[in-house]
């Protein structure tokens, strides 16, 4: 009965990169450095791609991802302390970690904006954020406490329709993936998620932009976790994310540049 919420752990074993490593001029890696990256679940697709690319560039490093809610990951790192790198969807989760056990090289690497999504046929005729206050709109949000859920309420408040829109909420989902699923299934009329959530959704959902004036921009920080035993590899991964190659991949998956 434990729901599968934590992202899938994706190990990139050295063997997978064999064809690439042959192009490397370095001698075959005698030992492979394991690197544990804990990342917000909204980063799942982008980081999976970045992880493959990074392994091509650094065949002697084996990156293992643990995707999940930023809050959950932060508390897990605090109690278990197995992470080398933490990439969070919110500053607060990173703040938690910064207080204990501490982080280094903290930097913002991406931004994510909110967007309204509807089923392709847009049954409730949503054309702007104000339409979310209309009667008989079945609106799905992430639950309070989930970053994207809190951000969505913030945007609705800025638009001055928090009360009406909240009354239209038919479900508070656990995470953004569940929110998107309710819309792609056609059961909800509208939802608010990250742009990164829909970048790869194709035609299964329709996007309605939220004006910058009321939109909430989530800034994603990344840092090396104090206590990491592979700080060199961790720093190398962090650098790769903020360098042009990593940034291009993030852009492909719907993220904006930091600052």
């Amino acid at each position: 009965m434990i729901p599968i919420r934590r992202g899938v752990i994706l190990p990139f074993i050295a063997v997978l990169g064999v064809s690439c490593s042959s192009s490397s001029s370095t001698s075959p890696a005698t030992t492979s450095t394991p690197l544990f990256v804990f990342a917000a679940s909204s980063l799942t697709k982008a980081f999976t791609q970045i992880g493959q690319d990074f392994h091509t560039a650094h065949p002697n490093v084996t990156v293992t991802f643990d995707f999940g809610s930023s809050t959950d990951l932060a508390s897990q790192i605090q109690s278990e302390g197995t992470a080398d790198v933490f990439a969070s969807a919110s500053g607060t989760a990173m703040d938690t970690l910064q207080s204990a056990p501490g982080v280094t090289d903290r930097t913002s690497f991406a931004t994510n904006r909110l967007v309204i999504i509807t089923p392709p046929d847009n049954p409730a005729g949503i054309a702007s954020i104000d339409d979310l206050a209309g009667s008989d709109v079945k609106l799905v949000l992430a639950a309070e406490g989930v970053p994207v859920g809190d951000y969505a309420r913030q945007a609705l408040k800025s638009a001055g329709i928090l009360a009406q829109a909240t009354a239209n909420v038919v479900s508070n989902e656990d995470d953004d993936a569940s929110v998107v699923a309710k819309v792609t299934a056609g059961d909800a009329d509208a939802a608010i998620v990250y742009t990164s959530d829909v970048a790869s959704s194709g035609s299964s959902v329709r996007s309605v932009a939220i004006p910058s004036a009321v939109n909430v921009v989530a800034t994603y920080p990344i840092a090396v976790v104090t206590g990491s035993t592979h700080t060199d590899a961790a720093t190398a991964f962090l650098d790769y994310v903020v360098e042009p190659a990593g940034q291009a991949t993030l852009k492909d998956f719907g993220f904006g540049p930091a600052g």
Partner: peptide, 17 residues
């Protein structure tokens, strides 16, 4: 104790589901 099917199918709204 049912959780998974309910949240996936019926959603999660206090007082209703």
């Amino acid at each position: 104790g049912e959780f998974g099917a309910t949240i996936t199918f019926a959603g999660n709204l206090a007082g209703r589901t």
